[in-house]
Write a protein that binds this DNA or RNA. Sequence first.
DNA 1: CTGCTAATCCCAA
DNA 2: TTGGGATTAGCAG
Length: 822
Amino acid sequence: MSLGGFLDSSSSCSSGGRMVVGGGGGIRFPYNSSSGEESSIINMPSGAIAQPRLVTAASSLVKPVFSSPGLSLALQTGFESHGDVGRLGSGNFEADAEVVGSMMNRRSRDAPDQDQGSRSGSDNMDGAASGDDQDAAEKPARKKRYHRHTPQQIQELEALFKECPHPDEKQRLELSQRLCLDPRQVKFWFQNRRTQMKTHLERHENSLLRQENNKLRSENMSLRNAVRTPICNNCGGPAIIGEISLEQQHLRIENARLRDELDRVSSLAGRFLDRLPNSSLELGMGGNGFGGLQAPLPDFGAACGIVCSSSVMAPPMRSAAVIPGVDRPEERSMLLELALSAMDELVKMVQANEPLWIRGLDGSGEILNRDEYLRTFPPCIGMKPSGFVAEASRVTGKVIINSLALVETLMDSSRWAEMFPGLIARASTVDVISSGMGGTRNGAVHLMHSELQVPSPLVPVREVTFLRFCKQHAEGLWSVVDVSVDVIRDSPSGPPSITSCRRLPSGCIIQDMPSGYSKVTWVEHAEYDESQIHELYRPLISSGMGFGAPRWVATLQRQCQCLAILMSPAPSSDHNVITGNGRRSMLKLAQRMTASFCAGVCASTVHKWNMLGAAAGAGDQDVRVMTRKSVDDPGDPSGVVLSASASVWVSVSPQRLFDFLRDERLRSEWDILSNGGPMHEMAHIAKGQDHGNCVSLLRAAGSGMDSSQSSMLILQETCADASGALVVYAPVDIPAMHVVMNGGDSSYLALLPSGFAIVPDGRAAVTAPRGGALLTVAFQILVNSLPTAKLTVESVNTVKNLISCTLQKIKAAAAVAAECES
DNA sequence: CTGCTAATCCCAA
DNA sequence: TTGGGATTAGCAG
């Protein structure tokens, strides 16, 4: 049955035909060593099945047959010029192996020590030249080689991998026993998983590089064209030499820069595989560094001042050289991996329709189909903690801002916080994992921390640490995704953070539209501990009006409109002419006032509050009272500040409530500062087309500017959108305000804000036909100008009474209004 | 065909 | 030895 010695003798090769070479040479057995025996008992307790001898014998064929003397000779003599030689080692050997394998167990000499241990005695060289010798029966069926670990096993492996991608021997052994896997398999699995992770990242960054490269190339091309056929900027005709020289210099310099950048990107892309961990960083820095400028500059001289104009083009960059927060490369790559999958999920969440998102009954919003969601996406940051509930919302809106500007805003924590003043109590960038490519935000990954709020003492602040990943999909098309990282970031060194909220992949996709607008689709998806939220507010929060997409988009629209209005020249309709600087100063002051108001209502860590606990007020509502000591803060009156706040349900619509509270003529109905009469608006700065969005300066009637009894004005900011409204005011000193209105610095003006926050009650229209509102009222009062003073029971009671009275008056007035309405 | 996964081979610390 | 990089076979989509 054998053509013994076939492989040994070059002479017989010529008669053997290439089948032998193709079959024998290419065969490579998976289990050609002692591991063959172990691998065959995959998924079974060790040693459960002994591998049959013959298989082992067959497996002793060794791979690089090319280099075995006998065969290489055979190749030279018999097949040297044969076209098929190149395909040796490819093709489907399994079938051949089944037939031939058991007979061909000659060990090639260049692999002497691979399988000493498992070799069977029968080392005869056997070869099969023709198919007629198949003896399948003799060879016991090899265990099916292909096999995958069970989902449970993979899940456990993944779980451990999340915690530690590098388990030690002990951990692996423990896991292998638990999962009935060979310890070796566990080792392989981790090895493979790490490799896989790496290749994922490589692939992604590579594609980003390619994109960049293409962009630069086309840019370069068009610039070359422009240089070749100069066109006069003024008349559009062909330009004359003298006219274009400056323009040409610009182009040449720009071109040199581009060429340089292109080279760098290309070489980086080439070297890329070697240096993954730093590549994105270097790119980000390098792309921004304009190293290319230095070379061409001497040629043209610095006289043209191009250096400046070029560097202006570069967006401001945060230094990414030192990363204090995430220094372990594994952690870094895990975060990147997380960012990638979050982005993937966000894009799908934005694009998906029917099965995933279902239109709400009232047709207003969309509801996430949880079953479909769980089916579609692997749990990005692990399973939902028990006791948590999920909240998901999606909204699309047209916003007056372009994609680049919005991306810049989102990627800068302080600008981000300013854009969403009522929503974000504070925000910071903890770490820059990747700063983006070629001087843009494309590919930027930041680790951020923020506190999100809904203005009510009944809704705790949401503290979240998350990754923010920015990606450019095309010209004018960007997306920014956030995802919580508490799972990964919980280090053994620190106490496990008790988070009450996790953000699943959330964020927005921004697409440029004509005339400065962009289309923004926002998805907000979170899981939170509902037990910490008062029943009154649960419907609001779960509807997404609290922390969800509707509120983000509504705020964004309102704020962008405000910015757009500020850009345009002051409207003549403002009946008090304030200078541009004055407007800016007042708005800045108002911004600080509103932020301080929210901080007092929400007890965010912007201030260090001491809770006195919620106690029943004089009325039926709970009033939360807190105090803080204020020292050495120029914007804050020094002493003991007391904050009292309460939220109640009111039976009028949010709009009506807002209109009532912001009407200065009706102010005497609830404001003790009004001295019982109407107030007058002395200055008005519009912040939006809607008249409700403005900053104004009020004066109580009867207290003239010159009267010494009242040197007080009231600064008030009101804003409203679909997600809610704020009326915030603070008494201000007239002389100080005068300085501000002339554009002076407002940061030394001490403020203690009070006011109202209104949100819809969140229940469906069915249960509340006319639509109720949730009203929060809050006061901040200086109870003693000595920071060391003790708080007296009287002052606490006074402020509680103030809250109760105010609420009662408003409710009464609202009831009247509601009656008139119906 | 590509991409993924379990496993093998081989090298260097 | 051991772990990691390179590679491969088997399979799914």
